[in-house]
Design a protein around this nucleic acid. Structure first.
Lengths: 190, 190, 190, 190
DNA sequence: AATGAATGAGATTTCATTCAT
DNA sequence: AATGAATGAAATCTCATTCAT
């Protein structure tokens, strides 16, 4: 066997962090190689292009998160509990590694189209959950498309506020407040 | 007799749209010249550098919006009405030209630091408004930093949902629902 | 207007000569820029890629030559005179600028497929001419596909021998001998 | 018990074919490893460098062919018979493995200088044979340098036509016609 | 012998900016 | 004001070769 690909992880971690801190276009392959202590060429053994690296990171972490959500769905919880657990799961995930969250946020504009139709897409998923809750009379009749965006906006903005130092870590401490807000919006109707 | 500097406007419009669609770093001066039908050199007649063009666009549109907000503040409305009008103003602004809205969102990370202390900074502004409302007992005691992010998240996410076709235009039609959600969150305490 | 593209010709000439002397793959863009006294980037204003430069040079010179042949065809000469003039035209062309000839020879493997079906393709053309001569009883019945290759081989090999110093310039001095050989092969039948 | 060094053969065969199809510079070590199903590093177990591989292939196959020609010379045949046998030998060689033929043609420019003085060099050889035939009055007085190129051109062009599908395999079937043409050119004088 | 990750030098290409026209 | 060729620096990517396993 050849050498173990010990530096692959270093490259990917450096890339992830730099992408978050400087943007994808703002990060050169040289930046990545400098930060990871690996030569530029090494990146290309593991990923065909820089763009491929971005896609691979996105796909991996997006899949990871989708897995968490899928597990949660299997429990068939009532809507309120589902939201509570979703927020908690999400924020625990964030607390463990904020970079992953911010990276996924950062590139989803470019790459999400590729998984748009995917039912693991969190937006799509939340939308379906809300529609079903509406049918089940768990929540009042409403424009669920809007509600989806409202909940999403709340849940996702708090980590962003955290990144900018406006919200204190750890996020899980705020999960209850956010959940409460979500329930208020959901049940408020419209 | 001086005719309008139409080319300048063409350049700036092309730049604005490309920046939104491809990102700032993802848009070359050549892209701008191609889309605007003006040569590359011409850009430098009107803006010292590409970065200057970005800043000029941001400053102009951000100032425009800040002006709207400033007018609103002068009215010294009760918190609920202020939120209602803010959302409405914001969404009317979006409906008039979504590109401007998305552009401002896009570059605020990079450029807002320069105006961070600015009280027109929407985050800062909303934060202050909420703190005062809390002091005035208009809303219950709460972690206003969190509430700020929650409201912001809701208000800003809806236009994004619109960009991706999940929400129907015009946005002003959804202003009431969003306002209602904001009030519920604000008054819900936590 | 902008600067005149004065250096475009320099770049193309340098490229042509280097391609012949070192091969296409053996010639770097830096080589071209050094020899032409122009920066590397300049090449990319006039040609999208290095490969495009190769194609442009080939297309231009191939077309030039095809034009010569087309003119010749219009004269509707008897086969012997046609061959005589073709060889003479070809060698005069070579004497004027040997690099062009060698360049076209060099890259035809890669690029000729794009013009394979083209009736301006000299191989195709010669083949047709021979078939018609056969039908007109100007030459005896034979495998014209083979004869085409035989004539082609003779006519093209002499310039190559010239390149390696085995044949003295100018080539036109040898046109008669080559013509004579062609006629012998053509009329020899088989 | 030593099993055959099959991998070495696989590498060399893959290299040979790729060199012909894509050129030497146009073929990377990685291409060779992919096509041969052997890893990149393995190549360096058998050949010091890529260039060494090229030289080894050339030397081996050139030597093979030179051997054939040497045998032929020993027979001291009259010029006409010599040409006939040379063409036949050459084409049988081609029919057995066209890739070898094309490879030798491809790299002879670069590598033949090392064997330029070599009397097995086909150009040199043919040239000497013709000069001697001229001295022996087997053929009329002529510019043998030109005649050499003419014969060479014919003999070599037919395999090329075969490569492009203009001539049908096997080549040995065309040997007689080519020989006949060679004799006509040789004896035609000039 | 074999593997394939990693290196390091260099190739091609991009691009904001300058400048002769 | 405008043009677009040219620059120069830096970006992305390639690739023969080495080396730890």
């Amino acid at each position: 066997m050849g050498r173990l690909p010990r530096k692959k992880a270093d490259i990917e971690r450096a890339a992830l962090e730099l992408f978050v801190d400087q943007g994808v276009d703002g990060t050169s392959v040289r930046d990545i190689s400098t930060r990871s202590g690996v030569t530029e060429g090494a990146l290309y053994r593991h990923h065909k292009t820089k763009d491929d690296l971005v896609r691979a990171l996105f796909a991996r972490h997006y899949a990871e998160f989708a897995e968490l959500v899928a597990e949660l769905r299997k429990k068939k919880l009532p809507i309120d509990e589902f939201i509570a657990e979703l927020v908690m799961t999400f924020y625990a995930y964030y607390d463990e590694d904020p970079y992953i969250f911010h990276f996924v946020m950062l590139v989803r504009h470019k790459l999400l189209e590729e998984v748009r139709a995917d039912e693991h897409n969190p937006v799509e998923l939340l939308s379906r959950i809300l529609k079903r809750a509406e049918r089940n009379k768990e929540i009042p009749k409403q424009n669920t498309a809007i509600t989806t965006q409202l909940l999403l906006g709340m849940v996702m903005q708090v980590p962003i506020g955290c990144y900018y130092g406006r919200i204190k870590k750890p996020l899980v401490k705020h999960a209850e407040r956010v959940t409460q807000a979500c329930l208020a919006v959901m049940h408020g109707g419209g």
